[in-house]
């Protein structure tokens, strides 16, 4: 039976889990990245967390799980923390919050456009230009579809000549 106390506790645990930084993009929290799906209190001192991967093979998911377990154990006072990986519904870059997008740009990574802004809804030629996070120019070109991690593409700014990562739409 779910009591009001449980609901309040779940909200608090969710807030805590959401503060965990992404291990590969530490400027973002898991809440801002949008990978935290659900937090359920399953019994006294016992909680279950649903986490979704950004990419199927994303190696960061194991570090995220360990960090969630630790924070809910140490700061949330939960004795038993289970993190489950859920695939459906599939994560999309649309799940990254506005605050997350702002932080990415500040960090030097061009944030993903929402998939509504991309013509055809796929990774096909772009309708809305990608802005250089260094100088703000929209005159940028693709160097490689894959960059330092699976979720990013490598681009170069034609105006300031600096290369930069673009969090590509998924």
């Amino acid at each position: 039976m779910v009591t009001e106390q449980d609901t309040a506790l779940e909200a608090e645990l969710r807030r805590l889990a959401g503060t965990v930084p992404d291990p590969e993009l530490p400027v973002l929290t898991l809440e801002e990245l949008g990978v935290l799906r659900a937090v359920h209190v399953t019994g006294p001192g016992s909680v279950e967390v649903d986490l979704t991967p950004t990419y199927t093979g994303c190696p960061a998911i194991e570090a995220m799980s360990a960090d969630i377990e630790r924070i809910l154990h140490e700061s949330g006072g939960m004795a038993e923390v289970t993190v489950r990986t859920v695939l459906a519904p599939a994560w999309s870059t649309d799940d990254i919050s506005d605050e997350g997008r702002r932080k990415l740009a500040e960090f030097g990574i061009a944030p993903p456009r929402t998939t509504r802004e991309v013509s055809g809804g796929g990774p096909i030629p772009l309708s809305l230009a990608i802005r250089c996070p260094h100088c703000g120019s929209v005159d940028t070109e693709l160097l490689s579809r894959f960059s330092s991690t699976a979720c990013k593409a490598l681009r170069r700014c034609v105006a300031c000549r600096e290369p930069f990562d673009h969090f590509k739409e998924l």
Partner: peptide
């Protein structure tokens, strides 16, 4: 170098599918 990274990233996606 860009292709090195691209092929490794594609391999990683496939490995993720394989594990599941």
């Amino acid at each position: 170098l860009e292709e090195e990274v691209a092929l490794a990233n594609i391999a990683l996606d496939l490995l993720g599918q394989a594990r599941i």
